[in-house]
Design a protein around this nucleic acid. Sequence first.
RNA 1: GUCUAGAUGGUGAAAUAGGUAAACACGCAGGACUUAAAAUCCUGUAAUUCAAUUAAAUGAAUUUUGCGGGUUCGAUUCCCGCUCUAGACACCA
Length: 832
Amino acid sequence: MKYNYKKIEKKWRYIHKKFNFLKFNKKKNKKFYILNMFPYPSGYGLHIGHSIGYIYTDIISKYKLRLGYNILNPIGFDSFGLPAEQYALKTKNLPKNIIKKSIYNYKKQIKKLGVFLNWDKEINTSDDKYYKWTQFIFIKLFNSYYYKNKILPIKKINFKIKSENLNKFRLAFLKYSYINWCPKLNSILANDEIENGRSIRGGYKVILKKTLQWHLRITKYIPKLLKDLDNLKWPDNVKNNQIKWIGLKNVYTIKLKLFKKNFKIFSINKKRSIHSIIFNYPSRFTNYILNLINKTQKKKIIKLLNKNYYNEKFKILIKFKNNYRKKINIYISNYYKNYYLKDTYINYKEDKEFKKVKTIYILKSKNIIYIKYTFKKKYIYNLKDIIYSRQRYWGEPIPIYYINNIPYSINKKYLPLKLPNISKKYFIKSKFNLNYIKKWAWDDINKKVTYKKYINNKNKVYPLDVNTMPSYAGSNWYFLRYISPNYKKFLFNNKINYWKNVDLYIGGKEHINGHLLYSRFITKFLYDLNIIKFKEPFKKFIPQGIILNETYIIYKYKNTIYSFDIINDKFKKKLQKIYINKKDIILNKYLNIFKKKYNKYNLIKNKFNKILCEVKIEKMSKSKYNIITPDSIIKKYGIDCFRLYIIFLGPFQEKKIWNINKINGIKRFLNKVWNFFLIKKNKKINKIYKIKIYKYLNLIHLNFKKFIIYKNISIFMKIFNILIKNKIYNLKLNKIILILLSNYIPYITEEIWNRLGNKGSIFYEKIKIIKYKDNLIKYLILINNKFKDTIYTDKDNNNLTYLKNIIYNKVYYPDKIKKIIFIKNKIINILF
RNA sequence: GUCUAGAUGGUGAAAUAGGUAAACACGCAGGACUUAAAAUCCUGUAAUUCAAUUAAAUGAAUUUUGCGGGUUCGAUUCCCGCUCUAGACACCA
């Protein structure tokens, strides 16, 4: 019998609305704060990539919930920023309205995924109740300075400084700096918003321009940002990325001396790290170098030496005495001045090792060459103070006014400083900027915004800052606001102290550098102010792989379309790239030229008389016509099927190419589950199967612990293959399996749960971890490293002397045995 | 240029601490049921060779985790070199 997912899912979605599964429970003493990076509600809606994240966190939180944790799994929207503004200009609307619509759509789509979220905690960064506190943090930064590892209020500077010079101390301060200026977008852009000297959005030219900008003094926090990385459960490559973004640069001055038999060979004095050494040729020590490298490299060098000039790079491994290894580059050149070394920094961890070691020696060499070195150190960082202002409309206004060009902050009592309302007409006409608005001055007597024409020092009406904050201003502290989103003050202490920082954070790889670093900085700042009691925002972070899909491209020049296979690379640069819809293609690769759309173009066909288009695999994007939305799949297969399939796709962190073909396997599996549980029988289980299944169940729990949840699906499949094949119907066991399965497929399991005669929701059932005892110990018998047999033994006879007898019965010539390798609990390898 | 990650069947992939490579699925091939189709179920599915047989079932051996080498009784896993792919950063300031 097939199960009717449409009916069942509709029914349970309706019933689940009435429950608040994630409701806080005082009796529970464990907490789990799990968080997805909040989405940017673009007009295009939720796509497959987003939904993986939500389903992933949902499965983990459903599991943790029933292990007895209080769960916080909130959601919100990051809604300030350029995309909404540009989309507004395009559609002749206001950003405010667009965001409203998009959020409505997003929520509708997310609710279809069968996820439990704390909807009562929802936030929105462009809501003035939220950005009031973004401004509050800015004022705190503005009014603080960093002194001897502490944050002090700027008022407490105990020596006389003119107020205009306070800028040098504030953590939020004004400074002239070169910024990437895009005249067309009328905005500054971050480095990562630019590609090949052009803005990524729009592709406009970007120039450098010196302007007065707000900055945040993140550089004061660099030592802490580096040091605290050690305690985080983040993937190493993410940590390394942070280290490199901060970029402690090579600043060692090193004297190198190479010795062999105390014979001085070479010395170098450069302000460079030890990563590279330049050798000049011809010289006395070239032969030694040639001994260090392998044959093919040697041949290369000898060839080089016959030329008039040469330079070549080789790598050799240096091993330090404390087992620390590092590759270094060797350059061989007769004009080494041109070969100025570029790879020149020592990262934070290596730095420590350098302090310890006094001599290093080079591996792979018969003659060991000792290198002595001395160095002085200095620190230079790649990371610069964050530029924190944008010349845009759609962002948080900076709560600052100016008296005689000196900045003063608006008292927090009078926050939020609301973004001025404007009409659609005005917005469309001008590329908007707060500079042009008439009602944008601060009345310091009445404490409110007033018209610019009243600006007058005597009346205490002053000009307001015309900048807004960048898009990451709202996102670098949002995880704190989720805990008490509607609280009148900044943070509700009791709740903050309970939930603390995020236990598991999930999000896109593209945010590894910026967003994570800035959040960490703000968290540390609030810690130093004693507002919160933890130093890091996200204890564990798992980056999510993107989903790619096929795109189809045709190349056009003026009024002519060329077949892709007849275009060479030079010509390709001239041509206009046009992404086309899959529907316009036949035979997968050939453009369907008979569609009306393309009738107006001249067509240059290939020798087979066809127009071939290019097929690429790229990130999903509306402009590339390769977006897949969950809606269509859910309609066809149901929510449970979609949820299980999208997790079954593969490792969460890897990028994946979208492919719907394998969903049939999931569909079959769900039918299997449905039909299996409808048989209401209760039998005893055979011990062998019981142990097998319990082993699998333990594995499932282990994978949950590691947050590797995709592997569990195949384990479930294995379990059901055993159950069905051997006709095992045991109520107790079935319940355990069903509850675990409900993390993945909530609706079908909920229906089965009720049909089996249980009352209430399956999501109020506790998950119990069953410990089993397996007395049998398995040994693999290998003969000359080849697997031959398995034998089982118990604890009392877990030794070679006992096992030898069994083995000798199986082996034909026990006299000829040369050696037996015995590894306890694992293996016996017999060598002849 | 530097750094990081990765490479396993036709496809997605699995292999806990170095110990039976390819679990679990998809797809494909063959079969059962059916007037037919869909669905479902069963069997096979890394490669090569050999034995045997009318044929099928079967049995055995060798090779195989991008390429080459090392450590080890034993390497998908650790080490070195190379090739390719992806990502991040920088160069300008």
